[in-house]
Amino acid sequence: MVFGVAGMPAGRALAAARGTSDIGWAGLAGSLGLVAVAIALSAFRRLALERSMAWAALRALVQLLAVGAVLGFVIDPARPLVFSWLWVAAMVVVASLTVRSRAREVPGALPLALVACAAGTVVSLGVLFGLRVFPLEAKAVIPLAGLTIGNTMSAAVVASRRIVGELSDKRDEVEARLALGKPWPEAARPYIRSALRTALLPQIETTKAVGLVALPGAMTGLILAGVRPIDAVRIQAAVMYVVLGSVATSVTVISLGLARRLFTPDHRLLPLRRPAG
């Protein structure tokens, strides 16, 4: 059973998948025609982006081929699952480094992101595999962890930058609360709440609008691979709930940790850098 898809014999699924999803090298080369269109448009409009587009297309292809090769090794059912977990750990580290580079004004972003991404991943994978929603095997662990970590990473960037931005913008108000003798968690609460809402709302909106505008990525991929739409929907729904849960977990973890770093134990707000852009 692929990702717990029920109601379709494996052979038929495979045949259907081959029919639609195996585009072959020729197909890939054909899709490069679209990059040529983009480059031609750039040249026509004198955007001077031709070189960047060509480089981006080439780089993406090389990166994906490399990832594909390694994934092929890790996902091989003969391989022990520990390789998958190592892969997941590496994804958490790379995601955390990305958070640090995107949120430079956030003090201690790297350790906070490590803890937040790890917490989001542990909670979501724990639920998925603990409740046997998906079978515990490499081809489920890696894509689900990737999806979770990718979303927690983006949410961690937004949440941490918003918290620093909000406390910096409203410094006068925060200090007025501190000056009334309020402990820092209480003085910071309204501003952290506002930052967390900002970080979580896009995920909630995406969840609400799903299917109305665009079909989500996992579902599109499954349908292209020949899975029945209703089966794809069940998987997609589970995936969305997991993403929502893991994003909420990581954002909460990062807010708790970050607030503690922005205030001193004697209830002072440290000098903050304004987020750029």
């Binding site: 108000e173 200090e175 007025a176 609360r177 309020k182 309204p190 209830h267």
Partner: peptide, 20 residues
């Protein structure tokens, strides 16, 4: 204790800081 000190020594800031 800074919380005790701050309740004892009140402060009004340069710009008005009304809360919502």
């Amino acid at each position: 204790d800074p919380l005790v000190l701050r309740r004892r020594v009140g402060m009004v800031f340069q710009r008005p800081t009304p809360f919502p």
